[in-house]
Each structure stands twice: as C-alpha cells, then as structure tokens.
C-alpha cells in the first residue's frame, strides 16, 4: 500500500571501491561509481516527469486500494496501535526486518557491495541470537548500521530501466522492474522455504498491519497535505525509490525518461 514508502530505512552508504581486493567486485563498484557520478554530473536536479501511460487504470486501482486501506487495513491497524505499547510495535517491526536481512545481504552482494553484505550477515547473526529473534537491534549498538537493499535496487544498479508507473492491486505503487523484483525478493526471503507458505503469509500480513499501525498518522497527514493524493503518492514513491537506488549519496536523480528541466531554476519566471 501507499504506506510502504514510509517504511524508512536510512541507508546512507559510503562506497569505498579503492580498498577492495576482488576484481569483479571492483569492476561492479566502478560501474556503480560511474552511475552515481554521472548522475551527479547531470544534476541540476530535474523535476521528475514520471511516465504514466495507463494513468486512468492506475487511478482506478489506486482508488480501490485506498478504499481497502481506509475502511479495512487502517481501522484494524489502529486497533492494534491502541492495544499494543509502542516498544512492542517497534520490536515486532525489528523482528520482521531481521527476517529480510539475508535477502538484503544477497542483494548487497549482487551489487558488489561486499562490505555492506558482510555487515548485513553480521547483523542477522547478532540480532537473531543476542537480539532475541530480531526483536531488538543490539547490532546497531556495535556499530553495525543496516544497509538494506532489494532486488529492484540491484536491477537498477545493473542498468535495467524502471519502465512506466504501475499501480498493483493491494501491493501499491510499482513498475514493471519493481514488480519482477518483488517476485525475486520473495524467493530470496528465508521464510517460505523454512516455515511453509501459510505461516509465511501470516507473518507477512502481521508485518503489514504492524507497519500500518506505526505509520497511519503519517499517511493521514500526507493525504491531508496533498491536492491530488494519487499524484503525490506516484511522485513521492518514485523519488523515494530513486534515492534508495543511489543510497542517498547523490540528489535524487530523475528516471530515464525525463526531459532536462532544472527543478530549482526560477530565472525564467521571476
């Protein structure tokens, strides 16, 4: 749902390709570095003109999703928010995020971020054991900050274009690349093979509702502070994805199909 982009995982990664001995890793890192620096070089940051050719269909699906969210998920999640103390909600979120860490480690590896991959594995080890099944995050106190990556980010680093904006039923904002990556990521995540499909689905639903219980106020104020909520979500989701792909290192770069219009140039309309 729209709240997914509110799941904030600050992943400011400093990429140090010089210090790595492996050639493949170095090559991949160099590729990434080029990607980042070329984004830097082309910044002035441009206004994202997001490709949305099936906007009417997307809008209809968005209205459907938003209806289910407002009259189904949100009331249930608010009930949970009312019952559960804040530390319980946070611990649950930690635990669900911990389950996603091995997948993130694999994606770090696929992007040539060896060091971050190691950090994610170490985080998983520490938080699963000392952190009691990931309920707590002692790893952060040992200086192991999360470097969360997903397969959509991996594909972006490999140079795969994102394609037009898509609104998926129930799953929310997406793109062809993102949809494909969601499938891969669900294979990368550990629980269906270990726990079986039913338990995995249950865990995911609980994770989903717990997330909404932590973010429904933000979603509400986002809705209130926008004139066209559909456009707001489309724009915000795209910008947020781009920032994550670039690890926050460069200004959010426009998607591939953007005309060079400087967002901050007001010389034409003083």
């Amino acid at each position: 749902m729209s709240n997914l982009f509110y799941r904030v995982s600050a992943t400011l990664t400093l990429h140090s390709w010089q210090s790595t001995p492996f050639r493949v890793e170095r090559f991949l890192s160099l590729l990434l570095l080029l990607l980042v620096t070329s984004a830097c070089a082309t910044a002035p940051r441009t206004a994202p003109q997001i490709s949305d050719p099936i906007a009417p269909v997307n809008r209809a699906l968005f209205a459907f999703n938003d209806g289910i969210y407002r009259y189904g998920f949100e009331p249930v999640a608010r009930g949970w928010d009312w019952i559960a103390p804040a530390p319980v909600q946070t611990s649950l979120q930690n635990s669900f995020q911990n389950l996603a860490t091995p997948g993130s480690a694999i994606n770090n590896l696929l992007q040539g971020k060896l060091k971050n991959s190691g950090t994610e594995i170490a985080r998983f080890g520490v938080n699963t054991t000392i952190g009691v099944a990931g309920l707590f995050d002692p790893a952060a106190r040992f200086g192991l900050a999360p470097h969360s990556e997903d397969f959509d980010q991996t594909l972006a680093v490999w140079g795969v274009g994102t394609g037009p904006y898509l609104m998926l039923p129930l799953l929310g904002p997406s793109s062809p690349r993102h949809t494909f990556a969601l499938c891969i990521d669900s294979f990368l995540s550990i629980w269906p093979p270990v726990a079986g499909t039913r338990i995995a689905a249950g865990v995911r639903s609980a994770d989903f509702l717990n997330d909404i219980s932590l973010s429904w106020e933000d979603v509400r104020s986002a809705r209130e502070s926008s004139l066209d909520y559909y456009v707001f979500v489309r724009d915000a989701w795209t910008q947020n994805r781009n920032t994550k792909i670039l690890d926050g290192a460069a200004p959010a770069a426009p998607s591939g199909d953007v005309k060079g219009e400087d967002l901050y140039d007001d010389s034409q309309f003083q």
């Binding site: 206004a47 994202p48 066209d228 724009d235 915000a236 910008q239 959010a252 967002l263």
Partner: peptide, 19 residues
C-alpha cells in the same frame, strides 16, 4: 526546499499543480 527521505516538497507540489 525540504526533502524528506528523498521526497522533495517543491517537486511533489509541482507535479500536483501541473496535473
């Protein structure tokens, strides 16, 4: 401009006003 988690306020309203 204020950018929260990569989401720029100016860009966000520009898109909505443009629409």
């Amino acid at each position: 401009d204020v950018t929260i988690e990569g989401v720029s306020l100016v860009s966000s309203y520009r898109s909505q006003f443009q629409e």
